[in-house]
Design a protein around this nucleic acid. Structure first.
Lengths: 223, 223
DNA sequence: TTTATAATTTAGTCAAGACTAAATTTATAT
DNA sequence: ATATAAATTTAGTCTTGACTAAATTATAAA
């Protein structure tokens, strides 16, 4: 039973991790990648060298790595699989919001194109997953709406939550408990100085959010 | 990202293959296993030795292997995953009958217990997959109705198709084309001697089936 | 019983992808 | 300018599960 995939699951996984990290750091360091993958730094180095040989990343030792167009193409396919699966698990199967990430991660590498089509069709070709993340199209186009983070909002502004960057189940449960889910409306009360807590109102209730967490909540302001 | 599974996918796969072969041969030979797994005989021997150490099979060199209760338990879990997935892919996602086997095979090893529960609930806890194969319960109970193969039917008998043992897409498409699907009614016309072709009538049409294929079609006679 | 053939096992390799320990490079602080 | 710390890479090892080639055992025919 040979695999008919051009690249191994491990390679796909690394490419996706690099893609995800790229949203934060412009150049992805070995340590950041190793941490994201839950792997030793040496292992990350080895894989980066391999990916460089395969022309999937551009890698400068002691500096960092970036995806090449070829690498990004594969990463986007994996991201599409992942987010479609998240949407499917949540919407079709009623799996809780905070559990879909881990499950989708396991499934994303064995999803055939045919099954992907069936799932996308079943869901009506959605453009966002339950976290609000955009789902790339089959051809690899990401519709990235211009968004700002909750932490960057001027005090007094009302905004709609579009996307939750966090993926850890505990964090997601916490946010859901506060009513902070994609689609909800929030008003920013106050931003404490020196990257201090952010106070927001959701409905009639006020909450204080850690700065780093607030940075992971992306909103669109009311126009 | 470590796996939290007690046994590798390869081990699960071998156990399932042994389980499936056991339906035909009482003792599973190395070659049969190697063929079923698409692997060299030497590889099958190696794995059998490993499985014997793990107490998952009882293995006698140059003779063959059988699952131990522990091995059968794992095999049944995989079989349950597989058949639930087949049912789900076919019934929920409209995937063609002949494609679900290959797809389910890839997914079965990464299906979490939670997702399994969601899928089973979504389907209303079915007891059979699209091929008519029984789906073991979570505790590993298989409701094996007493069945006989089409090839063993006395001439003139009418029977209902319960289960199709074949899994190759081409074969399945052929059978579907003849109207030979679970639930259909057939009448046995004639069984040629020396394991020759089997003539059956489905509706108003008559067909000749290869003996080996007929052996893979399981029926229940009208009472 | 001997012998040819088929099935099976043994022995030794290989590749992927992880690891640890040691060496090296870069960054920082005196 | 240099010493120290932190990050990164190199070197070498391990495990899994595949492979081929050679050796062994079982089976069936003469």
């Amino acid at each position: 039973m040979l695999k008919n995939k051009p690249f191994s699951s491990a390679i796909e996984d690394y490419l996706k991790a690099i893609y995800d990290l790229h949203a934060t750091e412009s150049v992805v360091t070995t340590t950041a990648l190793a941490t994201a993958m839950g792997v030793s730094a040496a292992s990350a180095t080895n894989m980066l060298k391999k990916l460089a040989v395969l022309k999937l990343v551009q890698y400068s030792p002691y500096y960092g790595a970036e995806l090449t167009p070829a690498g990004e193409k594969i990463a986007l396919e994996v991201v599409r699989h992942h987010r479609l699966l998240e949407a499917f698990l949540h919407e079709a199967l009623g799996m809780p919001w905070d559990e879909v990430h881990a499950e989708a991660h396991k499934l994303e590498h064995v999803l055939s194109d045919k099954l992907e089509d069936h799932i996308a069709e079943f869901l009506g070709n959605p453009t966002e997953d339950p976290h609000g993340d955009p789902i790339p199209t089959k051809s690899g186009v990401v519709t990235s709406s211009v968004q700002q983070s909750l932490a960057d909002l001027p005090p007094g502004t009302r905004a709609t939550i579009r996307r939750i960057g966090a993926q850890e189940p505990a964090r997601l449960r916490y946010l859901r408990g506060l009513g902070l889910v994609p689609g909800a409306t929030v008003r920013l009360i106050e931003q404490m100085p020196f990257e201090g807590p952010v106070r927001v109102r959701i409905g009639t209730r006020e909450h204080s959010l850690d700065y780093k967490l607030a940075r992971q909540i992306w909103v669109a302001t009311k126009t």
